[in-house]
Each structure stands twice: as structure tokens, then as C-alpha cells.
């Protein structure tokens, strides 16, 4: 692990949005929505970080903050030694080649008025305008082969493709600049299960071939387990547990992680019938006004007065940490 070079070092990342209050005066301060509230992690070359959590927990905002689609409020996103959040525009444009993204909506992420050849070639034309038309076409067709699309479909339009094929087009577009990191924002949640497996396996094999790092966001825990080296569990903008994928899946520490894992359907009907799911009571609290202390205490069965006052920090071994006061220390 240590011989792999460190690519991305996110330190105490916070993203807040200003939300105008209803019926507010012009001068009254807007509400702050804390979408991501102090997330730190490191990512090395060739590794995959899985990010899980329920809807609205800040997974996508985290991804979009790393890649610069939303401004960072506080903290650092260190990419190979440079803090991306503070880079001047021109340098950021250069660095951006190495970070690409795959989107959740396969068809929606493709411009309906462009041929897929143009779509895949667009990053290439932006960063290498000196390339001749034939060179671009050659590279696009090679990339299409690599992601499992027939190269002769280059002049077709996105609406002529299925969801899985569209996602392959999105992957080809992300790969054409030979990036070092690809952020996958729920790349398979809009696809059928059989297609999901194809796309995930494609990503995995491409990762091996090109030595890519992935940040893989999903709410399907089984998919994350399949592809990830490390897993981060998020709740209401906070990291609640982080560690090696095996450690998290075999030995979850945080009560929230336990509840999530207990909800994975088992493929065996007998096991499924006897399984006990820890249903979480209540709803996700509003990130505009998060609970004091541990953000999870409103829904946690173990919570006591300490949890309502103090915010737990991540504790445990470096390979597996969790933010909870109720974990027995070895």
C-alpha cells in the first residue's frame, strides 16, 4: 500500500450552500446548508474508494466539490501536492485533465444534439486542439473498442443507444484524456442489475489496465463491496466510518453502518427469511439545522446524553476508524 503514490489528500473538506429563508428580508442572513461537514481521506494510485450513505447524505456533493463543480467552503483538496480549491483558473484547467467524472444519468449526461463521436472527442478537442481530425477519430474509435462499443457506431446519436451503452459512452469520454482519477457518481444506479454487473466489471478491468484510481459512489452496498478497496460511510455530511472494505463489511463498528449492512438482501431465501433488519427510526434530519453532538443520535438506539452534547471523532486503527462513543476500545 505504501509503495503506491498518494494522489488525492482531502483534508477536513466542508461544503456549505446558502439557502434563502422563506419570507426573509433582503438583509437577513441566509441559512447555511451543511452538505459536507469535515470529510478527510486519502486516495492512492490504483485504489478504489467506495462512498456509501443514504440519499441526501452529501456523497454527490463531496464528489462535485473534489472535481470543482461546487465551491469548497473550507478545507483542502490536495491533488499531487496542489490544493485544487485554491488554484488559479488556468492551472486548474490544466489539472482537470487528470480528474474525470462519470455521471448517474447515462442518457442525461450526453448532449442529445451531438453524435457520440463528437461527445467522446470533446475533452480531446478541448485539451489538444492541435490534433488532426483523423487522429481524433482514431483515438475515439480505439477508446470505443476499449469500453466495448462497436467503433462503427461513431456517427450515431445518444437516443439510439440503451442505458448501458450510454454509460459506456460516458466512460469512454472520461477515459479519453487518460486521467489518473475517475469519480463515479452512482454510475450504475440507473441501470438494470445485469447491466450493472457489466458496467462495474468494465470499470474494474479498465482500472487494472490503466492503473486508475476510482472514487465510487453508490447506495448499493453489494456493488461497493465488489469494487472497493476502502469504504467510507457518510451520514448527514459526516464520515461515520471508514476503513478497508473487508473490515467494514465483516466487522462494522458504527451503529449506522450496522443498520445499513443489515439491510442488504441475502441471495439465499432461507437466510433472507430469518434475517433481522435494524430498521432506523425517524427520518434523516435537515442538514440546514443538524443535531448537536453526534449527528446520528436522533436515530441511534445506543445514544445517551453524551452523544447529544459532544461530537465523536474518528477512532480506531488507521485501517478502520469509526466515529462513535459506544465502540468498545480494545
Amino acid at each position: 500500500m505504501d509503495n503506491k503514490s498518494l494522489l488525492l489528500d482531502v483534508k477536513n473538506l466542508k461544503v456549505q450552500f446558502s439557502i434563502a429563508k422563506k419570507n426573509a428580508w433582503f438583509w437577513s442572513a441566509p441559512d447555511q446548508l451543511k452538505a459536507v461537514d469535515g470529510v478527510s481521506f486519502q486516495l492512492r494510485q490504483g485504489e478504489t474508494l467506495g462512498v456509501v450513505g443514504e440519499s441526501g447524505c452529501g456523497k454527490s456533493t463531496l464528489a462535485r466539490a473534489i472535481i470543482g463543480l461546487v465551491p469548497v467552503t473550507e478545507g483542502e483538496v490536495v491533488w499531487l501536492g496542489d490544493d485544487l480549491a485554491k488554484l488559479p483558473k488556468q492551472d486548474w484547467h490544466e489539472k482537470r485533465q487528470d480528474l474525470q467524472m462519470i455521471f448517474q444519468d447515462p442518457l442525461g449526461s450526453l448532449n442529445p444534439r451531438m453524435t457520440i463521436g463528437d461527445i467522446i472527442a470533446e475533452p480531446l478537442k478541448t485539451y489538444h486542439p492541435q490534433l488532426s481530425k483523423d487522429d481524433v477519430k482514431e483515438q475515439v474509435q480505439q477508446m470505443m473498442k476499449k469500453v466495448g462499443l462497436l467503433p462503427n457506431l461513431i456517427n450515431r446519436y445518444p437516443h439510439e443507444f440503451s442505458g448501458g451503452q450510454c454509460q459506456r459512452i460516458g466512460i469512454a469520454r472520461a477515459l479519453i484524456l487518460k486521467p489518473k482519477l475517475i469519480i463515479c457518481d452512482e454510475p450504475v444506479s440507473a441501470l438494470d442489475v445485469s447491466i450493472q454487473a457489466q458496467v462495474v466489471n468494465l470499470l474494474k478491468s479498465l482500472q487494472h489496465e490503466l492503473n486508475l484510481s476510482l472514487i465510487f459512489i453508490a447506495h448499493d452496498l453489494a456493488v461497493v463491496k465488489h469494487i472497493s478497496d476502502h469504504v467510507m460511510v457518510m451520514y448527514l455530511g459526516n464520515m461515520v466510518e471508514m476503513g478497508h472494505a473487508d473490515a467494514i463489511y465483516q466487522n462494522p463498528q458504527h451503529p449506522y453502518t450496522k443498520a445499513l449492512l443489515s439491510a442488504i438482501p441475502a441471495p439465499d431465501p432461507k437466510a433472507e427469511r430469518n434475517k433481522k433488519i435494524d430498521l432506523l427510526a425517524g427520518h434523516l434530519p435537515s442538514p440546514i439545522d443538524p443535531p448537536a453532538g453526534c449527528v446520528f443520535h436522533t436515530r441511534c438506539s445506543l445514544a445517551d446524553d453524551e452523544c447529544k452534547v459532544n461530537k465523536p471523532s474518528l477512532i480506531g486503527q488507521p485501517t478502520h476508524t469509526a466515529a462513535c462513543f459506544k465502540i468498545k476500545q480494545d
Binding site: 474525470q100 448532449n111 460516458g170 469520454r173
Partner: peptide
């Protein structure tokens, strides 16, 4: 998403 995709592609 395709506008965001273009932004990510540096357009």
C-alpha cells in the same frame, strides 16, 4: 448532466 459533463471536460 451533460452541461456538467462538459464543465468537467474543461470546455
Amino acid at each position: 448532466a451533460f452541461i456538467e459533463a462538459a464543465q468537467v471536460s474543461g470546455v
